[in-house]
Design a protein around this nucleic acid. Structure first.
Lengths: 180, 180
DNA sequence: CCCATGTCAGTATCACTGAAATAA
DNA sequence: CTTATTTCAGTGGTACTGACATGG
């Protein structure tokens, strides 16, 4: 039952955790921060973090399909179903049948959706912007590299590259149709 | 209804998103990766990511209280209650009444808990270790800085420092008793 | 009495698996 | 018929708020 290794001397839980664990703590702090902010957004904005991200992306690329969105957001299509339903129920998002493929729907923002989308106050994106602001270009690039590696290492073990071929988002990719 | 700004020319959803959004995509990729791995761990290990982190920390600091743990993990005490219950129900964790303060319980791993704790295969920690491995010290430090900033910016607006005094885990801090 | 610690009750979202419906 | 796209049903965990019990 390991008690304290990798460090020297007596340790206090609030200062030192061994190497990787320390990073884990930081990672969870960020993950929880994201989730907490997401929850707070619900009362302030009316939408959660993932929901707003959907609005944001659909705002940039009107007419996207659910599957496209799922691939971008790295979520399972069935997860997106629920998110979209809530957005539609709130009249923030609108689905229009795709004439060329009636399994799909083209997603667009409603006027209300656009309004919510325009609000940045207190969003995760705002926090990210604030955090990134005042960080050197070098550090940003480094963080990017590390996070990309991390995301890659967190991908399902199957089909996982040797950790050297980036391979892009592997998660729920399923593209097919000509890329718009 | 903004369509595409901040970038030049026609864009494809799978390549370019404007600045901060790009980072958002990466961030969500990591967050989802963490959650996905956590879920997968449930079937492979029997514990989720947060659950294992609790085991990990309690393994390092036996006798911790729930509140201490909540502060370290940056979660609300009531959230921890459920996590602890599941761990106790699985006989991975054991609570012993603290003689000096009977509201508290001292947490310890059971033998089974120690065994699970020792397993690293397929854990988030393993992925983090693998990702960090082969990253320069510089990049690690940079990432650390950025993530710390980010975590800070994601903290609730109240009691938030000027972004220069690290101030340790701010989230649900409520320490009181002498730090062991 | 007041504060601290922690649990309980209730609620919501997300995320998955696996199966099914619809369309290409 | 086979494949693609998406939804539906069911499950579980996390995380919160707010109230409450117990102890210092």
């Amino acid at each position: 039952m390991q008690t304290q290794s990798e460090t020297t001397g007596p340790i206090s839980p609030f200062t030192d955790l061994p190497g990787v664990l320390q990073f884990m703590q930081l990672l969870w702090a960020v993950v929880h921060g994201v989730e907490r902010t997401s929850k707070r957004m619900t009362s302030d904005l009316g939408v959660t973090g993932p929901q707003r991200l959907v609005l944001r992306v659909v705002g940039l690329f009107p007419g996207m399909s659910a599957g496209d969105l799922a691939a971008i957001l790295h979520v399972h299509p069935s997860t997106l179903t629920g998110v979209l339903q809530r957005l539609v129920a709130q009249r923030l998002l609108q689905r229009v049948d795709d004439p060329r493929d009636r399994r799909r729907a083209m997603l667009r923002l409603t006027a209300r959706g656009a309004r919510v989308n325009a609000t940045t106050q207190g969003t995760i994106e705002a926090a990210v912007g604030k955090a990134l602001d005042g960080v050197t270009v070098r550090d940003r690039a480094a963080t990017r590299r590390v996070l990309e590696r991390l995301a890659e290492c967190l991908e399902p073990p199957s089909t996982q590259a040797k950790s050297d071929s980036p391979r892009k988002g592997q998660t729920y990719r399923r593209r097919s149709r000509g890329d718009r």
